[in-house]
Design a protein around this nucleic acid. Sequence first.
DNA 1: TAGTGGTCTAGACCACCCG
DNA 2: GGGTGGTCTAGACCACTAG
Lengths: 241, 241
Amino acid sequence: MLVQPKPLAEQVEQVLRRRLREGVYSAGSRIPSESELAAEFGVSRATVRTVLAKLAVHGLLLRRQGDGTYVNARVQQANAHWGSLWDFNSLIENNGYTPTIQEVAREVRPATEEEALALAIAPGEGLFSIHRLFLADAQPVILAHNVFPLSLFRVPVEQIDGSLHIRRLLQRYAAREVAFTITTVHATHLPEKVASWLCRQPEEVMLSLQVVFYSKDDEPLTLGHSFFDDRVLRLRLVQAW
Amino acid sequence: MLVQPKPLAEQVEQVLRRRLREGVYSAGSRIPSESELAAEFGVSRATVRTVLAKLAVHGLLLRRQGDGTYVNARVQQANAHWGSLWDFNSLIENNGYTPTIQEVAREVRPATEEEALALAIAPGEGLFSIHRLFLADAQPVILAHNVFPLSLFRVPVEQIDGSLHIRRLLQRYAAREVAFTITTVHATHLPEKVASWLCRQPEEVMLSLQVVFYSKDDEPLTLGHSFFDDRVLRLRLVQAW
DNA sequence: TAGTGGTCTAGACCACCCG
DNA sequence: GGGTGGTCTAGACCACTAG
């Protein structure tokens, strides 16, 4: 049923995710049993189990011993999402809008002390800094500022496409995979400069997220600082056991 | 090596978590290989793997193919935590304080429309409502309000110990296990009443978390609304792949 | 090249829920 | 009782990294 250019589990996961997204398995309903799925895909039950376990941790499925595996209707309808803290595109999509990324400024400059600390580089070392605006159906909702150690890139920064999401950008221009993120959440007043980009009044109350992306080697890849209009977008997260 | 009153994987997980907490495996160092751990505990490699995978998702370990498994020093030193969104005790501990829970008010009253919607009950149905203050080294830092459907409890609400964490409280008095949570994060001004409890000025900018706890049967267990002093406590989260 | 984690299988037995 | 998910094993082979 499945060939093997990519791991079987990954392929099964993609198929199941699509079925959930497209409503083949409808909200709240029971999906086929592990054995049935294993037979359908021609893989072992263990392989199916690793996939179902992952989808359950991400809040998409509920598993009940002796009963079956169910589509988590609650999470689906609440538009809650596992990666909202760093994946603004999905966040905007989950709020029912179409996302666009618009670059508003970029520069190369030396790192401040704070930036150097977060990125584990020397103060004054070269940084690539980029300001980007996330639009939800053409309405500006998030302003994100990212800084990357200049040494990460294999190409001149002029060639970097500023409309890519962070993970894609790091893959393409730095050949790095993101392994984990650490996010700090704050409530702040909106700085004047950011307010103009977001078309809002200064001093409004806003959510601010500080995110650091790390590679599997524990190497800091980028430091992000973003402001977030929580009157338009809801920051809603799932955690499951 | 291990007997089996509880699942082997769970026992292995507890041992490894303790070793990480107590520094037996020090920050950034490599821990024994899967085969070595399997031999030490007398379990199969597959069992060890499920445990290591879980600890990696929670950000405690980093796994590198062909190399080994390492203690994630970055997460440890940043005091980042997987469950900060709903486990305020761990949150306070991770910020370096000793947590205490202090009950400040409780009542039984009918549910508002909004509460009824969130808890999937009828408006006007009985609720147990409790306001609690979380102290970090005796300093008030979080005010949490929780409402529970009255029908959940097997005992008179007078017997409920208001100083327990939510999960423990639900286990003991409602015989329910929490399976997942949905959290909405907001930035707000501090309401006057809450300000006095937290010993702060009204209208200060604060983080507000709205959390709903669900059972494995998709049954809403409690709706929580909390205010959060992000000048004392940092809300810092890990997400790993 | 040796050792690590990554993938996958086949099969056993258990705990649990339902009709 | 029959089917579901939960636990666990033994073993195979692969992909990768280090020295």
